[in-house]
Design a protein around this nucleic acid. Structure first.
Lengths: 356, 356
DNA sequence: CGTTTTTTGGCAAACGTTTGCTATGAATCG
DNA sequence: CGATTCATAGCAAACGTTTGCCAAAAAACG
């Protein structure tokens, strides 16, 4: 029964199944079945129960249910420490898309930050081992692991997004970083460019490795030596994108045989790079073509509008959720661990033929 | 006891309190007390229990605890439908800041989207009435309300952020929109500007009302008639910021007596407005000064770099969480419902004296 | 050393559901 | 019409904690 004491200061709890049962004149178990498993109860009683529930404004207690069935309906998304603060809307888009898909599947989204400190790892592990969450989507390359407990062995379905972790056995949803950059580079080559500047993300980072490989593939495909591309950056994290671009602009200024095209691995880099080189007097795209990665909406309004590679976040989020829910329902082993959603290059005015 | 069957296909559940109790040679209740309420148990037994727990890798089940104590440790943040997709990092910053503060307080963050559809309202209400969440931070001006149930009457502590809902009785954390815009306008006036274009957000929106009021206040303070400011926009949502800016640029082009300064209520508007007017041949800031709102990091790299009003999101998030936790702990009624965190204007090159 | 107080730890009853089992009556069958 | 199935609904036992209450032991006191 609702133990709503109506006493000031007492925690009020809403109506319980028992209240609904009494009002409908049935047993608690009938209410439970009517609400969750309508086939298991007579249509007439079901209606009585539904009416009673509605009249009381009954909402089942999620924790009691979760405890009983031994499962929660919460999914956590593990975000790397500070992926924020740039121009890209990747994180909000991911959250939006994932949350939408999850809710359709009856799940809720909890966010967890994985920082460098042990406390955040421990916290995530508590969430996993404490039964709070039912599955995880991770956007980080490292799985939390603290004294014996490890996310990988928590018995939780996990899906990786953005980063390919299929080699670690995790279903992954990624875009075709390498291929997309290869094609963008091909476009630049086709325009006549022969010397390139590559703005790198953090060394060893999956995205940087893949994207740089894309550049090299394109060059080799065109019979150009690897030496025609100069790497800049690589010392900072992606979240420092703007700073990478600024440093790269200085590197560029010091360069002897100047590249005519820039391939940036994030829009942030491209934007700040462009800003500083323009301040130095360079004309873009006449002196320098630029293409970058992330598809930030603001690129359309840069001067000149910036060509960028857009990842279909909506679709990637949907796919990640679909994989996760499939893993939860243990329907079967996933056909393939690595799921690629193709990006597309949005061509704008920052690319043209080299003026030489 | 852990009913880990070691049978393929069986759900494995971790060690339970009972397992820890057995290993430590004490009763379950002792374990519970040792872990949660260390003062209530002898130091020596506490150590024994701690050791046993660590050895087994024990993590308490959050749902069982939640059910028993009748409280969850999850806070939900209610985000409006699609606040996303611009240049501003407000949402990610809010999430980051709030989550960090919550975790320090022992809480977790769940995200909920409030769309126009009834389903999303129902979903949020289920979260509230189903005991899943313990409190809510809302970034939306409207509280969900569906057949009898309303968030306001869920008995949940709620804090509003960004929007002032103190009149509805909700503790609110806002910035000094009006004052900040007033001061920015004053700066423009001091520079010599006498005719203004105001890029509006959605009509009736709290932010738009406040910010426009700030413009008017500044004008009156300087003895200028309200008529020196032309309003543009107001037909679209903030998330359509880029489009507002484009439309406003067209409006501007059609204007007879041209303003010399633009006050934009979001960076998105300012950026796209600037882009289009520059394409029309206008020089910024020589022909037109611009100042906007949001403090998007990318503004520093626009050409010219854009003056913008930056909201201290970190601090706002912390304050919102502090208010919420205080409300949960019912320490006392909040001293004041409306909590203002001051924004600051970042002056960049988009503002100068009018050339006339 | 007897009495009172304090510390400590165990027992068992919650918390609000779900679900296996069982009992009832209705329906079907031969 | 008796025997068998079937649909329906109730009982009560879980799920894994926390916590009020009590008893035993230890400490403090006179």
């Amino acid at each position: 029964m609702s133990k709503n004491k109506d006493v000031l200061g007492e925690e009020q709890s809403g109506p319980l199944m028992a209240d609904v049962a009494k009002l409908a004149g049935v047993a608690i178990s009938a209410v439970s079945r009517a609400l969750a498993n309508p086939g298991r109860v007579n249509e007439k009683t079901r209606q009585k129960i539904d009416a009673a529930a509605k009249q009381l404004g009954y909402t089942p207690n999620a924790m009691a249910r979760g405890l009983r069935v031994g499962k929660s309906n919460i999914i956590m998304i593990v975000l790397p420490g500070s992926l924020y603060y740039g121009a890209s809307q990747v994180i909000p888009q991911v959250l939006q898309s994932i949350n939408k898909s999850l809710i359709q599947g009856g799940y809720n989204l909890m966010i967890a930050n994985l920082d460098r400190d042990e406390a955040s790892e421990r916290h995530i592990l508590d969430l996993a081992f404490g039964g709070t969450v039912r599955g995880a989507i991770i956007l980080s390359s490292k799985l939390p692991e603290v004294d014996g407990r490890s996310l990988a062995s928590a018995g939780l379905p996990i899906v990786s997004m953005l980063l390919d972790m299929s080699e670690a056995g995790l279903p992954s949803v990624v875009t075709n970083d390498r291929e997309a950059i290869r094609e963008a580079t091909n476009d630049l080559i086709a325009l006549g460019h022969r010397r390139f500047l590559y703005l790198a993300g953090p060394q060893e980072n999956y995205h940087d490795v893949e994207r740089f490989a894309g550049v090299i593939e394109a060059l080799r495909g065109a019979g150009l030596p690897d030496s025609v591309v100069v790497r800049s950056g690589g010392r900072l994290d992606y979240q420092q994108g703007f700073n990478i671009g600024l440093e790269a602009a200085d590197d560029f200024a010091a360069l002897g045989d100047k590249p005519t095209a820039v391939i940036a691995t994030s829009d942030d880099m491209a934007i700040s790079f462009m800003s500083r080189t323009q301040a130095m007097g360079l004309k873009i795209p006449d002196d320098l073509s630029i293409v970058s990665f992330d598809g930030s909406p603001v690129c359309a309004f840069c001067s000149p509008p910036l060509s960028t590679i857009e990842q279909p976040m909506e679709e990637m989020g949907q796919t990640a959720v679909a994989l996760l829910l499939a893993a939860i329902d243990r329907t079967d082993q996933p056909r393939q661990l690595r799921n690629v959603i193709r990006s597309r290059l949005i061509v704008r005015e920052s690319m043209t033929t080299p003026k030489g």
